[in-house]
Design a protein around this nucleic acid. Structure first.
Lengths: 266, 266
DNA sequence: CAGTGGTCTAGACCACCGA
DNA sequence: CGGTGGTCTAGACCACTGC
């Protein structure tokens, strides 16, 4: 058993370490290696391939499905999910985009800067040499006629050079990053802090000089490799992170309807 | 089968509707009716009581555990979770408390105000008449020797009067609210915005006059009824909301180790 | 020690989907 | 139709907890 062709590593039955965990780990490795471009194996196939019971297979695959890496449904064979959706659908930036869209407002950007530069600090955050050239994109995002956010993105020049001629007045950096450069986000993280924008930033964003802002710093990864550093400033007087304890979907960055600072929903 | 004493409704085997879903529904009814105050039944007990397989039982119970309504662990019998924990375990305030605890710092508060007052705006948010008397508690929370947060709470006087003599220098408003008043939070919501504290608030919290803060507004409910309005200011230079896209547990309010403003984790 | 939940097996039938 | 995932059974052994 456990001896098959396709590429699954043999599972050693150690006590203390669940079998399904080893199976999960192995599947992750194969996903990272793009071994399933022609379709993710079915559950019965995995049962045979690894020589474990179906229950064990389902326990491992469930984790991947919960993470959105694999999609499956009754009747249809399992497929590997498009990685784009994963990273794009997460984080405060996406919920910002979504909440504005939900209000029916037009979203566009004014490109304030697009070019190549070196930045030692950002390069280090991306795990690159300090002198590594980076593509820098600075946009002021609007919803309707109002400025919403100041968005600054640094990308490795070696990957993102084709973006230097692209048009960014209408959203979706990630789409172009994928189309033109073949870079697809699969992970990363965010950090949000409250800050007081500089006078220059205040002039761009609008609002009074004592209006604070969300500072959202985001590191994007493609296959564990950092491919994006982003620093976005969002007006604090028109947006809020909200959550309802009875649901479990965490915080959303929502556009505030009326100019009040009152009630958590429901 | 399926005929037992304790109170479980018989499960009808309809096709199309999963058995575990019916079981879950029945368990929820019994939870709502406080039928498990002397301990939640073990899995094997449920197998016998409902006449289904253990797998089916686990599938139903898993949902309750994910929701935090039931706690279980290897070796120990299952217990119904204290409802307090549910609401307390959620939201930025709890993750603030947890992250400070994780750093091994002592958490205490200085009570700046505790008394009865009327506040039309807050009363309205609590769904009360404007003139309704409220218990007002204002505390400055410390971690170690550093001020962390300024915490202001309004509670309906009709419920919270016994708290007027309580000692709040050491955390856990909710514990006392439950002990002394029989009020246990079961739901609610939060809203987080970045703000610039007033000079008076700055003096309390410390930090420079241009340091922004998280403004956390929280409405707490017990059985749908609003029982708490809270407004907390958290220093923005020492805390951040962070998340990792590869996990799904949403944002956490974390104490920043070093005074840097750099990388989203991993 | 006995009882708990965690893991795992080897089956089975079904609802659903695409060809 | 055949193959998929969804559900369910009736067992089993183990690790851990508390007495």
């Amino acid at each position: 058993m456990t001896e098959t062709s396709s590429g699954g590593t043999a599972l050693r039955r150690e006590p203390g370490r669940p079998l399904w965990e080893q199976l999960l780990e192995d599947l992750r490795l194969r996903l990272d290696a793009d071994a399933f471009t022609h379709g993710f194996p079915g559950e019965h196939a995995l049962v045979e391939e690894y020589g474990v019971s179906r229950h064990t297979v389902r326990q491992a695959v469930k984790v991947l499905r919960d993470e959105g890496l694999v999609v499956a449904g009754r009747g249809r064979p399992s497929r590997q999910a498009e990685p784009v959706e994963i990273a794009q659908r997460l984080g405060a930036l996406y919920s910002l985009y979504e909440s504005v869209r939900a209000m029916g407002l037009d979203q566009r950007s004014v490109v304030r800067s697009l070019g190549t530069r070196a930045d030692g600090v950002v390069a280090t955050r991306l795990g690159l040499e300090e002198s590594t050239p980076l593509v820098y994109l600075e946009r002021l995002r609007y919803a309707g006629d109002e400025p919403l956010a100041l968005d600054r993105v640094w990308l490795p020049h070696s990957l993102a050079a084709p973006l230097l001629d692209a048009d960014f007045t209408r959203g979706a950096l990630y789409e172009r990053y994928a189309e033109l450069c073949g870079v697809v986000l699969t992970g990363g993280g965010e950090r949000i802090q409250p800050i007081l924008p500089t006078p220059a930033e205040h002039r761009l964003l609008g609002g009074s000089s004592t209006t604070a802002a969300f500072s959202i710093q985001r590191l994007g990864r493609a296959k564990r490799r950092p491919v994006e550093w982003r620093h976005t400033l969002v007006r604090g007087d028109r947006f809020a992170l909200t959550t309802d304890f009875s649901r479990k979907d965490g915080y959303h960055l929502d556009l505030l309807g009326a100019p009040d600072r009152t009630d958590p929903r429901r």
